[in-house]
Nucleic acid binder design. Structure first.
Lengths: 182, 182
DNA sequence: ATCGTGTAGTTGCGCCAGCAAGTATCCGGA
DNA sequence: TCCGGATACTTGCTGGCGCAACTACACGAT
């Protein structure tokens, strides 16, 4: 009755037919599909919850928090724009606007880069530091309650390893010359 | 030097100080933070790759694919709009526009609901079915190569269970009367 | 010194999503 | 019967994001 992905296949057959045949990619098993969808749903739930709670309690969303956090943990509380864009998983233009907002809010400042006149640093201000310090517990609390509390020690360790493996298995910066700052 | 989340804490101390003290939420350990960030990065990478490959090979993005797939696996290849919105993780208005696009592309049709004059169904057309069948292998291939191939059987099973646990631990439809269709 | 290529950041533009308000309909109770 | 409140979907509006184009600068080669 359904076209496609749910074709029940014995999980054992997966690795057998999968990489071997080469003509059409093996459809996903029910278990595989469930894991993937679970990942999507869990991510959506977590991000939505974080966004909502940060916004409610401190007036800025997750993306701002992540940028501020990246700056706070950088040496000198400053980062080149492109470096910050990468850490916040934003495009350069996306980061330009986010930095505009944060700067208007007084949380960061832009300062020109002495060694490269093209570039500038985003620098966390005192206000930004304070605001971040206030929001940190909210952030940690949401992640702990909704994610970490549901994970055993072993789950946590395995999750970390799996994500690492998945990330290094994919070029990621694929369609990009990459390079950028130091 | 850094304000906040990275405070190195012995992982063992986590469960000890964590739920006990109750005043301020325990900051995240390095391992916890790494797992959470890994999740964010892996999700971003996977979604971006899927979006790009689906768009390149079939001319529509992940969100469209997910909606079409939900319809394909529904009985009668049709779903009430609100039900479809939930499965595609979109707001009602978001789904209205997506349905507009899919309808313009001839991939779905809207048909009025006989038993409830307020409602309508999104119904997969023959063209939609064909297009989805063509895109399915691309979808499966990306997920398999970038995610599943990096997971052992045990990883996969655990990932599924963990996501399920995380999801049922959170109200999710929290700020919603929920209810909707059948 | 000059030129060509590449990089850093910004800006114009369009897309897509959510919120809030609006319309039509349903349904339970007085 | 009629009414109030809830539900299904749509629409107006706004905001955030990416792509492509643009400016300014850096750097290696001639």
């Amino acid at each position: 009755m359904s076209t496609s992905l749910t074709e029940p296949r014995t999980p054992a057959a997966a690795s057998a037919t999968g990489p071997a045949a080469g003509t059409l990619p093996a459809p996903l098993s029910a278990e595989e599909l469930a894991a993937w969808r679970g990942l999507l749903c869990a991510h959506a739930m977590l991000v939505k919850a974080l966004d909502a709670e940060l916004e409610a309690a401190h007036g800025f969303p997750l993306s701002s928090f992540e940028a501020l956090e990246a700056l706070a943990s950088a040496s000198g509380r400053r980062l080149r724009m492109c470096e910050l864009a990468e850490r916040a998983r934003l495009s350069r233009s996306g980061l330009t606007r986010l930095a505009d907002r944060l700067e208007r809010a007084g949380l960061i400042e832009r300062v020109d880069c002495a060694s490269d006149a093209r570039g500038s640093f985003a620098v966390l201000t005192a206000a930004g530091t304070a605001v971040l310090a206030a929001a940190g517990p909210t952030y940690a609390d949401v992640i702990r309650r909704r994610l970490l509390d549901q994970l055993s020690e072993a789950d946590l360790a395995r999750l970390g390893r799996v994500c690492e493996r998945v990330l290094e298995a994919s070029p990621a910066r694929e369609a990009r010359g990459s390079g950028c700052c130091a």
